[in-house]
Write a protein that binds this DNA or RNA. Structure first.
Lengths: 114, 114
DNA sequence: CAAAACCGCAACCAAAGGGTTGCACCATTC
DNA sequence: GAATGGTGCAACCCTTTGGTTGCGGTTTTG
């Protein structure tokens, strides 16, 4: 049967930078903060971490590039907000991978028991 | 109420290298191949990709380090197999993040409507 | 046993990543 | 209007990463 949810090379190229953005402890920590704490400014965020404010800014921009975070100016501050949609994308991608594996196992089993 | 599924810094440090391993198009492609095609040798795998066999080996070792893949010698070949468990870990991690966000939204809503 | 196939190891290279410091620039506040 | 607080930008640094080439070693195969 056809497999409409197959993982195309295009999807691979789309998902890779998303996972890459998640692949850093500091950035994951930032996401956790933004998830549970709500919108905050950079200096407030960087107070929790052990690296400089400028480093945190760079990380936030990487997250923004991946679509995991959004920023908006508010007076002299720049407020950063979590963006849940892209996280769902990553979620779905992993699910497709798992399903592909299960399908392969199923085919293997059917072949062996034949 | 207490929150036993909270994302601790330890979990962040554990999850980061896992996502980092997923954060490369070539490695994702390798995972897709191993998921759908079953156990294969390096040279067979590298035939599909545009980089050298040695580069593919490096990628596979990164995936193995992250626990996403396993290898076993078999005669003169080294056979690589997909390992689904760590993929579930990543899956669960993303789910915890989503839930944390939903909880925060719920608290915000309760606060606003108070 | 000689040739071919499969792999491991090492050296090397260019580019990207994560981090820092220093300074200039608005917006607030006193 | 002067000081302060929050950012932005640029230069610079070291390490990691993704990739290559070259070569030697070990199973298969003819």
């Amino acid at each position: 049967m056809s497999r409409p949810e197959a993982i195309t090379p295009a999807k691979v190229r789309d998902a890779a930078p998303l996972f890459a953005a998640l692949g850093d402890a500091t950035r994951l920590g930032l996401l956790v903060s933004l998830c549970s704490g709500g919108p905050v400014s950079v200096t407030r965020l960087s107070a929790t971490f052990e690296v400089s404010r400028q480093a945190i800014t760079k990380h936030l921009e990487v997250l923004a590039e991946a679509g995991l975070v959004r920023s908006s100016r508010q007076g002299r501050e720049r407020i950063w907000t979590f963006e849940p949609r892209r996280l769902d994308d990553a979620h779905h991608y992993l699910e497709r991978l798992s399903r592909q594996w299960d399908d392969a196992l199923g085919r293997l089993k059917a072949f062996v028991e034949r």
